[in-house]
Design a protein around this nucleic acid. Sequence first.
DNA 1: AGCCGGATCATCT
DNA 2: GATGATCCGGCTG
Length: 217
Amino acid sequence: MSEPQNPERLLPRAFFARPAHEVAPDLLGRVLVSGGGEDLVALRITEVEAYEGEQDPASHGWRGPTARNAVMFGPPGHLYVYWIYGMHHAANLVCGSEGESHGVLIRAGEITAGEALALTRRPAARSHRELARGPGRLADALGITRALNGTDVCAPDSPVRATTGAAPLPSVISTGPRTGISRAKDVPWRFWTTDDPTVSPYRAHKPRTRTRRLGPA
DNA sequence: AGCCGGATCATCT
DNA sequence: GATGATCCGGCTG
């Protein structure tokens, strides 16, 4: 009967049709929305990382297309979800041109709507700022799983949408090396909103101790 | 506040 | 068969 009073202002696909390291800082302050009505959860993005396909040894697209990374090679403005460490999901937004495999990992943010639902999905969170502080936590808070891999975030009827966010966008942005990777450690493609409490702590890659080693007697 | 180890499985070698 | 774009709890200080 009536239009919503605050229609979502979606980011246009052209926003994502640029190299990931250019899109990444522009995503800070934008709002990712999952679900709708009673099930809506919104997240103001505070931390991201860029990955640039076959040029970037740290990117999932580095060695070319596979079943897992196929969405990254598709058109921009889609959600690429992967499963890692046997227990976490991570959400990325596909950037660049079709045929490339650029993406921005959404690492952290502040929940700005639907906090009660986010908390039921993240019962371990001890405070507001921990609800989506880190990529695995963020995916949990938004209810993002591999079932949503390939979702078009530029379409109003999608289960996950990328919106412009409210002005003013963050005025101070920090940059540094990406977190938890073993290759291309020095590329400064992690971007975050300076001094925001929801930004995750930096962790260097730590090679894991051998699962088990049975040496000869 | 910071470091360490364990959990746990899809993906690729 | 090893590794990983991580998280959490327990310990140290």
